[in-house]
Design a protein around this nucleic acid. Sequence first.
DNA 1: TCTGGGGTCCTAGGACCC
DNA 2: TCTGGGGTCCTAGGACCC
Length: 423
Amino acid sequence: MAESVLALIDCNAFYCSCERVFRPDLAQRPVVVLSNNDGCVIARSPEAKRLGIAMAAPWFQVRELARRGEVEAFSSNYALYGDLSDRVMRTLATLVPRLERYSIDEVFADLAGLPEPLDALGQRLQARVQKWTGIPVSVGIAGTKTLAKLANAAAKRWPARTGGVLDLRDPAVHDWVLKHSPIEDVWGVGRRLAARLRGEGITTAWELAGQDAWSLRQRYSVVLEKTARELRGLACLSLEELEAPRQTICSSRMFGRRQYQFGALAEAVASYTARAAEKLRAQGSLCRTLRVSIQTGMHGADDGRYANAALLNLLAPSDDTRVLNDQAQAGLREIFRDGFGYAKAEVLLLDLCGRGEVAADLFAAAPDPAAARLMATLDAINGRFGRETLRPARIPRDPAWQMRRDLLSPRYTTRLDELWTVG
DNA sequence: TCTGGGGTCCTAGGACCC
DNA sequence: TCTGGGGTCCTAGGACCC
């Protein structure tokens, strides 16, 4: 059997790079992108990192720097990032046939059977994506996914030495990188695990790879056992080219400001339900259970804290926004309490099944073709003219609870009226 | 004052069954 | 007085990812 070889291709500071594509004046400047609601920093350009701005730094700590013009900040613009992500993926597909899109800015590629040397292929991928989309990427090449992630992290950590492309199959390179990669850089090791491992004196990827796998399973979990095996070159995770349908679909958001009225929460829940139902239909699923939850702020709880959730079972599986919203509203009425300042609502669709898989229920009403046509039309119009062009009447155009996005860039690529102009 | 949103997988513990 | 153990299903919670 041929040795497996994979690459992990990862866009550098992706959200920042997207903003720069349309703002060449920012090429060498510190740039940050903020989370929904402009809460905290979720992406930093290398220049912003050098300024000492931490990941997840609260915006109010960075605002002064931005006011003085030392850093350029943007609200997150997912319409733009999603579109540029599609372009990056399509560009890669012109050179590599088998791809697994792992996240908005990362993709695994199967390189088995492609002509050596593979780092030359990596450089071609890098150059073509840069030229066709304007997005810089790094490429890590290795025999397992965990090692490819580590190779990619190393390519980013030592750009002068690697040029952003690193093949970890060379044993000397492999050993050197593992010995110099802190345990936190290993995929699957988060804050908690890293602290426990460090407590045991395991501080590098090399030391984790050297642990006895069975003992890791006993002391930690099967997940960490697999991670250690993968670090030793034994593939435990395979390339998943086919995207499996989601098992749960969630739509949730913090409000731009605290909400006290039932009516405002009802609007938000209707809006989140509509969004979740849209995602449900997009993957061709039906939902049998819906969970709606609300909560007050977690910080500075002057008006008291409260959080609650309601679980609703549908009579028959459905993907109809109106049916789901009736349930969501009933759930909200159950759990709403007066006198609290609510910060967030969430709608979760679970117990999903394929549209074709539903066992006929003698007592349920037959599926209504008119309803299906209505939902399909709704999705087509919103797909063409933008989200919430058509929406349930209870959702206002400019609701009081909508999230803050004070620093939003135009949707250059997906809205005709916000097209990039040159001149 | 202010700290995201959307997912996955695993584990532990309780209920229930034979 | 003795008072099983193994399997399954469900749920909540934890940890991780980007």
